[in-house]
Write a protein that binds this DNA or RNA. Structure first.
Lengths: 247, 247
DNA sequence: TCAACACTTTTTCTCGAGATTTTTATATTT
DNA sequence: AAATATAAAAATCTCGAGAAAAAGTGTTGA
């Protein structure tokens, strides 16, 4: 993943199909962890998962190791793998760091982006807006919205020339998406996010760096509030036993 | 690595010994890549490396996958692994991103660090200074210096409460260490780094955030100059054939 | 001389089985 | 009854061998 993200083209990895079983398993696992199919803290038993993902044990282990460095999975000595736990403290950290990274990326993007980039921003915003309109009607619309929201944020900073900043942004976005989906499980997507996206889009195309970063910061921080008001049992829930003995 | 770095204690991973063969191979490989034993672009053949590192093929593959997400190794479809290539453009990116991350970390560290932290900063600086004195005499002193330099930079930001910022800092430091060691292969460590470290240490303990960040920024950027003046054949050298066909 | 093709060799990728370690369950002792 | 010790069970970690793919080699033909 970081391979393509860092060194290769700017082509989205989602487009190209996986070249190896390891990569395929890695992406499916990552998606399922982010979407909460594998909830935080769940024990990831290789023997069981190899059937579910239809790959050998060694292959699955390699995929899990990839997720370890992404901090979506933790490996504990000789005690196997586990979905990375969540906590409010961790999400506060993620959010603040994301603000730092993403505003810097947006600043650079606004400073350096060309007309083509502006076009892509408007296009991504339009696609996102359409998905937002459909949110109440169809049930399947939320997956669309999630995808287009990710693309919108990605396109916004796509003119930032730093591969490393983009790499870190992707990691942090994925992390916060995991939290957001948990909070959205109860609370629906609020109405005012569209207005925020509108402001963000306008300020960006107008090349108003300060305004855009301000809106973006508030936009990101708003998700933190949503998670703060989440029932506490969600945060400490560890599906398969938080068997964390006092050591 | 990110496991310990992100979720566990602040204990340095170097201290605790590896719990599995995968982790052991991962660390040895990482060290050898950073130190240039495996030069940039080198093909990493599992069949050969398994003897060198004395582990099975599967184990070595898992270790390599861990290095992929660290961006020290790149995996190419069905064409095996390779040490991540280097370029001036990449190092400029690393350097700028490192300035962004590390100055923010230092700012937070200065704002939140307690007396104990100040003590650790002074101690790390002292140890680094001693190593710098020995640089000309003994040949083995450079490894000491590298280690203590890393610790000094780590301790400086150790009071920053963000695990994520510290995580990213570690990744970027490792990346730039790889470049620095290449430039140091010819040029020795210049005299004035000690003066820079002194200024950095003084400003930090004096809680002068702006001055400290300014010195740190210049300090990091200085390494970029050193690499810029490096013979170009170093940068594009790919030991085992840059077999990058036009595709 | 160069290009295209088939063949051989090397390397990667994948899977299943054996050895350790951790965890769970049971039995014994205080 | 609580705690410790022992034994069984499950899971992890590791290795080596077989299938698939890539790279290399040599031959043939224009």
């Amino acid at each position: 993943m970081s391979d393509a993200a860092l060194h290769h083209s700017a082509a989205p990895e989602a487009a190209m199909e996986p070249k190896t079983l390891v990569e395929g398993a890695y992406r499916r696992l990552r998606r399922n962890i982010v979407e909460g199919v594998h909830p935080p803290g769940e024990k990831l038993r290789v023997e069981h998962l190899k059937e579910q993902y239809d790959v050998g044990a060694g292959t699955l282990r390699e995929a899990l190791q990839l997720l370890v460095t992404d901090a979506l999975v933790v490996a504990q000595g000789q005690r196997g793998f586990r979905v990375a736990p969540i906590s409010l403290k961790d999400f506060e950290d993620i959010t603040r760091t994301r603000v730092l990274i993403e505003t810097e990326a947006l600043r650079q993007s606004i400073a350096l982006g060309d007309d083509d980039w502006e076009g892509r921003v408007l296009a991504a915003f339009h696609r996102l807006s359409r998905a937002e309109e459909r949110l109440d009607d169809e049930a399947s619309a939320r997956e669309d919205w999630e995808e287009r929201n990710r693309v919108f944020h990605e396109v916004l900073i796509s003119a930032c020339p730093s591969r490393w900043i983009q790499h870190f942004q992707q990691i942090l976005y994925r992390q916060s998406e995991r939290y957001r989906r948990l909070s959205l499980f109860r609370n629906p997507i609020p109405r005012d996010v569209h207005a925020e996206h509108q402001l963000l889009c306008d300020a960006t195309v107008a090349r108003d760096s300060e305004a855009a970063c301000k809106v973006l910061t508030e936009h990101i921080l708003r998700t933190l509030d949503a998670v703060r008001h989440m029932p506490t049992e969600f945060l400490n829930a560890a599906e398969n036993g938080p068997k964390v003995r006092p050591a």
